[in-house]
Simulated assay, not measured.
Amino acid sequence: MGTWLVIFVLAGAFLLQTVLSYFQTRYYTREFVRLRKMGRVVIGRKRGIISAGTLVLFAINAEGVILTASRIQGVTVFARGRQLKRYDGKSIASLTVEDCKTENKLLQKAILNAVSNYNTIMSGGQIPPSPSFFQKIGLFFKQRVAKSKA
């Protein structure tokens, strides 16, 4: 009986996670589409494994001027977007650390990631995919082994 209870609890948790992730993705898609109707959208992110994750979305015009900005930040799937009005009218290519120093560290990193993504794309480059969790673990151990050999 105990084994079946554990199986049902795990299956229920998996199903709940799937449903909540669906709603989070749906919310993000609606927010993206809303901004996309205004112009191009630049996205910056700072992943959080245990801490809060942060997404920042900038709707920009053809000259790279920010029309509106929105952030989605939180630990759970219940995180919702908030407007960032202080960036309206600024050029995304010229945003610096000084421009976002009043924001929390995660939001600062997401904003700077968006600026980096914009500059990379505008210069004709491609944004490299971020490594997966297991790739990060492999890189960590690879660096440890390299340090111990040196």
Rank of each mutant, 00 (worst) to 15 (best):
V33M: 10
V33A: 08
R34A: 14
R34K: 15
R36W: 11
R36K: 15
K37L: 12
K37W: 00
M38N: 11
G39V: 09
G39F: 10
G39I: 08
V41P: 07
V41N: 09
V41K: 07
V41L: 01
V41C: 08
V42T: 12
V42Y: 05
I43R: 14
R45C: 10
K46E: 14
K46M: 13
K46V: 04
K46H: 15
R47V: 12
G48N: 05
I50S: 12
A52L: 04
A52F: 05
A52C: 02
G53R: 03
T54G: 05
L55G: 01
V56T: 09
V56Y: 00
L57T: 09
L57I: 07
F58E: 04
A59N: 04
A59R: 03
A59S: 15
I60N: 05
I60K: 07
I60T: 10
N61A: 03
A62Y: 05
E63Y: 10
E63K: 15
G64E: 06
G64I: 07
G64M: 10
V65K: 14
V65D: 03
I66T: 06
L67N: 04
T68H: 08
A69I: 06
S70T: 15
S70E: 14
S70Q: 14
I72H: 05
I72C: 12
I72N: 09
G74I: 06
G74A: 01
G74M: 02
V75N: 10
V75C: 00
T76K: 09
T76F: 07
V77A: 13
F78C: 08
F78Q: 12
A79G: 11
R80T: 15
R80P: 01
G81P: 11
G81S: 15
G81K: 12
R82V: 11
Q83P: 03
L84W: 01
L84S: 05
K85E: 12
R86M: 13
Y87K: 02
Y87N: 03
G89W: 01
G89P: 02
K90N: 05
K90A: 06
S91L: 13
S91W: 02
A93N: 11
A93V: 03
A93I: 01
S94I: 00
S94F: 06
L95A: 05
L95V: 11
L95C: 04
L95Q: 06
T96W: 01
E98V: 05
D99S: 08
C100F: 02
T102N: 09
E103F: 03
N104H: 04
N104A: 04
K105D: 06
K105P: 02
L106Q: 14
Q108K: 13
K109G: 04
A110R: 10
A110M: 07
L112M: 15
A114S: 11
V115A: 06
V115P: 05
Y118K: 10
Y118L: 07
N119G: 00
T120E: 09
I121F: 02
I121A: 08
M122F: 00
